[in-house]
Design a protein around this nucleic acid. Sequence first.
DNA 1: CTGAAAGCGCTTACAG
DNA 2: CTGAAAGCGCTTACAG
Lengths: 327, 327
Amino acid sequence: MISIREVAKLAGVSPSTVSRVMNGTANVDKEKKERVLRVIEETGFSPNQVARSLFKKSSKMIGVILPNITNPFFTEITRYIEDEAYRLDYKIIICYSDNNYKKEKENLRMLISMNTDGIILLANDGHIKEGLGSYHIPIVELDRNLNSDKSLAHISANHYQGAVLATEHLINCGCKNMVNMKGPINFSSARYRLEGYMDTCKKYNIEIQTVDCDYDYKTGIKSTEELLNKYPNVEGIIASNDIVAISAYKVLKSMNKSVPEDIMIVGFDDIEMSKIFTPEITTIHQPIEEIGRKAVRNIANYKKGEIVQDNYILDVDLIERETTIRR
Amino acid sequence: MISIREVAKLAGVSPSTVSRVMNGTANVDKEKKERVLRVIEETGFSPNQVARSLFKKSSKMIGVILPNITNPFFTEITRYIEDEAYRLDYKIIICYSDNNYKKEKENLRMLISMNTDGIILLANDGHIKEGLGSYHIPIVELDRNLNSDKSLAHISANHYQGAVLATEHLINCGCKNMVNMKGPINFSSARYRLEGYMDTCKKYNIEIQTVDCDYDYKTGIKSTEELLNKYPNVEGIIASNDIVAISAYKVLKSMNKSVPEDIMIVGFDDIEMSKIFTPEITTIHQPIEEIGRKAVRNIANYKKGEIVQDNYILDVDLIERETTIRR
DNA sequence: CTGAAAGCGCTTACAG
DNA sequence: CTGAAAGCGCTTACAG
């Protein structure tokens, strides 16, 4: 690989001058500038980012730590993170933690030693919080709130409000007997949603009925079966997310229950699949695009020296589709 | 951030010794070694990967260039790429090209200047091929074949065979009137599938009927509508992939056509959604996991100095589910 | 406007 | 076994 030194030699200038031409950091004699530009063009020279990064202590990379890649919600967020990063001239480097605290920490460490300019972290619970303080790198918590005052910002949808909307919607659809499929209680998103559900039940004097679940398809199947056993007269299901809503539908269909006629289902997230699926899933829309873009912009703005807001709770909406019906 | 020099000072040794302890590159006096280890433990020191990478000319990172993140096929491959990379102690850095040649080239250049140890490339057509030669970094072409002799290896499923299986399956199901939804002809995967379809039609003396399509949901909807206009008596549809199969189903359903009774559909890829969808999609299974893992292993093995095979065409299988029926 | 020098934080011959 | 030195390829004060 050709280096700046060779470009300098070919153009008859010093490496400093080549650097200045590339980065526009100082005025350079017009003729020399053109010579340098020509040599760069001819040789296809591309400056070594590693060397640059070592000096600048900035790599123009943003690290993203995701629980897993199986959940489309994360994939969709990642898409917007990448897009915004690209626009702001950052690369992203993605790690998966498998919801595993040790791997989370390992990834965090690795990303820091890579001089990333910031880290977008979707972590599970408080464990990792303690470690955060020792790093002076901007960390944005996404979706799941660690309540760490060491991080730059926290961005998530209003999970509580979403659960309230979902519950009230089922009430408006005439459901009396409803069951909430809980997400893992060590995820803040799940905790807030549960609260929203319970508060709404209390407000409307409806019995609180729950079943433990997770955010994936397989668990969704198992939990739905359990749910039907435990609450055979259920009229409405609040699924922990869209994937689980889909698994609930599958189980109901295999038992010849009609959706929404016999039993209604509300999902959460509004992933793309929820409107592609048949029937289309009624769900709570999270502003996925905004969450992803904001995370990147927050880091970029911070790097530019701007003061950034540190807590965003974004509004969600109810999207009525085919798994519920007002009557 | 603490550096190796400070660790050395605290442990009362030279930076060289600290380096040797960390990397196990030479024997170190037992007592000194313990002192160093203790200091590392206490300070939480983590060596700067950028500096390391600058010297070693290896970053322990593998670049992945994907056309987009919307297509679950790519997401699922990425999942296995990441997993295998993690096992072999590599990080992955993901870029999206939006099927855009300029962005592909830009990403390629960037990844190279980051000292990545290898690049996994899903590129569209031959444009980028020419550029490949000037880099002495292992590049593995995935899924889409560029026919470049400059790349380390090419790995893909047997698209031709897949199309043959799909076509013969529809024939076995009693379809006479079938239509093939073509993928973009500048993707090698689409070309091979078209060939397989056409050869099979010729072999069984069936009329070749096609309609242009792409690999995404929206185009799938449009193409299906066009298809039904052009071939109103169609009995079987070979969709360009599973997502398009799903859109075809949506269109048929909205027109009150029954699947598989009135019209059958075969997809391609066997993404996870194809068995979650209702009805479950009959499709051609690509060995997604094997493709992803092999790509990473190829690069890792090459880095270890092993000779790697340069061309893998992996077998595919027909997975019969609910969108076709033998009668 | 421009070049020589120093340094970013590591690693590895080299010499002892 | 171990330290001092040189170097990976850049960038930026510094001096002119």
